[in-house]
Design a protein around this nucleic acid. Sequence first.
RNA 1: GGGCCGUUAGCUCAACUGGCAGAGCAGGGCACUCUUAAUGCCAAGGUUGGAGGUUCGAUUCCUCCACGGCCUACCA
Length: 474
Amino acid sequence: MGQEEIYHQRLEKRELLQKQRLEPYGRAFKRSVTAEISEGQKGVSAAGRIMAFRRHGRTAFLDLRDDSGKIQLYLKPETLDAASVFCYENLDIGDIIGVRGDTFRTRTGELTIAVQFLTILAKSLRPLPEKWHGLKDVETRFRYRELDLIMNREVKDVFRKRSRLLQLTREFLTSRGFLEVETPMMHPIPGGAEARPFITHHNALNLDLYLRIAPELYLKRLLVGGFEKVFEINRSFRNEGISPLHNPEFTMLEVYEAFSDCSGMMELTEELISSCVKELSGGVEISYQNSVVNLARPWKRVKWVETFAQLGLNWQDEPAVRQMARTVSPGEDDSGKSLFDCLDAIFKKLVQPGLIDPTFVIEYPRQVSPLAKSLPGNLEMTERFELFLAGLEVANAYSELNDPVEQKERFEEEVKTQRPDRPKEVDYDYITALEYGLPPAGGLGIGIDRLVMLLTDSSSIREVILFPLLRPKS
RNA sequence: GGGCCGUUAGCUCAACUGGCAGAGCAGGGCACUCUUAAUGCCAAGGUUGGAGGUUCGAUUCCUCCACGGCCUACCA
């Protein structure tokens, strides 16, 4: 029987129920138990979705599932009232029902509700995927996540873990005196990162706006305003390619602490991630894909220049850098690439995959860190780190550049050397804010989705985002 | 954007070198009062992602299109 026929059969059952004044889409149902029942309870009530139906002569066993797990039901028409029998006769796998009855233990030892009353709370009109193999097709899983959640228990666990991580992060930060804030998602000038923005438009103001690519500049304006410890956990949007590591909208944690700096952020990062991993994975080791990551502290630190030196490369030797970049990404036009683009390509190909145990790569060049403060006595390098775990970039932090004159010069330099596909504008409101005085501060960004990937051993960012972006199926 | 791969029943999967498209689950019927991937029997379910082409004949070969996956590029 095809899907259409099943659909119409179930529609007919819906109408049959209505004719008997048994509303197939019911109202609130009071439950007294979830999956944890004990023997000999009288008159318990439970509700959930029918996941399996084992008819057995005049009796039947049903698997009822709610958010807490599975409850087995035992049904015998002669112990039911007429309305319940009618519901039972028009029941399908997938229906959401409410039941009342007494608990008992079956011969095989399973705690079960012997049903005395049954009502349909929501008639399901479409057949569920296969009960044993579940729903495997990744496209369907992401497009119809609700089906994925019904069929694949592990998927629910991923998102429970994600929620728990966010909760732990908030607890960690607020208990240390950080204030959770919300800054605009719609920016007149996109800033705080290097990415193409999504454009939107406000009609009443007749104003083009950009979905934020990072909340950074607004958060630092709050430090100017006198909040000393702030954080925001929310979406940023980048109009770039989609990959197993990139979704156009993704969740970032950004933390700013006045009178701290890059090394303060390093300590905070170590503590935050260690405590979350301990809580969520129960130890200092996590296995991710084919690697084992040991999070025992203290974490490794290596200077950015050192990582190239270890490859036998002097990062300032441009011909050598370009030579190596070509071997790393062969057949590519590198004429438009800067020295730093080439270094980044080499880093991503040859250095990053080896950074399995947590590693802080520190002291990045000024040219790739426009918002970071330079090292004392070394204008070329900045007080900055990126954190890598299992080869994934998880965090980025620096001592915030708080000299308005230098910041303005760096912004204006960026505008001068901008790429045509990525127009840049100086955010003078931000400069003005700095001119009133931004206290010395440390700032930190953590990619929450990637951290969830690590904690759930997910190979793709789409596994940890409930509704990842897909092209609509026309 | 480029390369490679995939798309077969509602779901999970078969189908040799181009030769009648087949199972299991779900759904329908019958039997069965302790099953749990219940069981046994019977019947049904297909525009093989879409459009073209080659061929006596296409799920299979070719072209284009759609969607997806992986790699790559872009995203500090």
